[in-house]
Design a protein around this nucleic acid. Structure first.
Lengths: 130, 130
DNA sequence: ATAACTGCAAACGGTTTGCAAGTCT
DNA sequence: AGACTTGCAAACCGTTTGCAGTTAT
């Protein structure tokens, strides 16, 4: 959850970071806005977006790939994928990774992979219990 | 590339389908608009969007997951993933599929998967040659 | 001191919608 | 007739930007 090098840790940013900290791992700019505004009432939506933008640069946050518009996910560094609960919307990270083997991609499609993105949808432990 | 049941195949829709037919598999609403307008000059952007919407319902088209806003991909039916060329933007389908095994997801995360989305980025055969 | 940061309000880009007219069967 | 479709223009929603003033270091 780190900001880029020369970024300053202001009250507003602290409030946004804190808001990201709560919640199930995925969020909307407006959700953060509402949450963060409880402790930082003057906060503007523009600042929320600017903060999200900073976090995107350090890969601490990413737009949620396979989803509706406007959803972001909190991300820890390093290669991982997301388990997205279709019931409660929570997002969990997993280090489990199964990409198609490079050799086969090359052989079958002449395609040279450099990265991939994988999201798994389903039901999280909590929602399964209920 | 089929339209839903009771949908009519009008001149405008034919032009849009045709425009999707050209191109490398991924496209933008406006790209289609420009292309299709060459043979169907009166065509409106709204109609392009409405046609894309129809195709989304039959899964003949999907929003391109891990990409900028506004990109769509032509999709054939059935489970497959996309190989996206970072150089030319073309999108190829592959039946190669490697998802994390259900048993392991359940064991490690208590997560019950129901579907997944996988996109591979890299360089396509054509661009590798050049 | 000086770069970084903020709120505001306006602008943006992609997408959707209400409507009245047109078209297919 | 009756359901479906279209173009137009306006509305929408998430996001970005210019600006003038404020703040962290």
């Amino acid at each position: 959850m780190l900001l880029p090098a020369k970024a300053r840790l202001t009250r507003q940013r602290r409030a946004v970071l804190d808001a990201i900290g709560r919640g199930g791992g995925s969020f909307t700019a407006v959700e953060l806005y509402d949450l963060a505004r409880r402790r930082e009432p003057g906060l503007s939506l523009a600042t929320v977006y600017r903060t999200i933008d900073l976090l995107k640069r350090t890969d601490a946050v990413r737009p949620l790939a396979g989803s509706e518009r406007g959803e972001y996910v909190r991300c820890s560094p390093g290669h991982h994928h997301h388990l997205i609960c279709l019931t409660c919307g929570s997002v969990e990270e997993t280090e489990l990774c199964a990409a198609p083997p490079e050799a086969e991609l090359r052989e079958r499609h002449g395609f040279t992979p450099s990265s991939h993105e994988l999201d798994v949808y389903g039901t999280c432990a909590g929602c399964l219990a209920a």
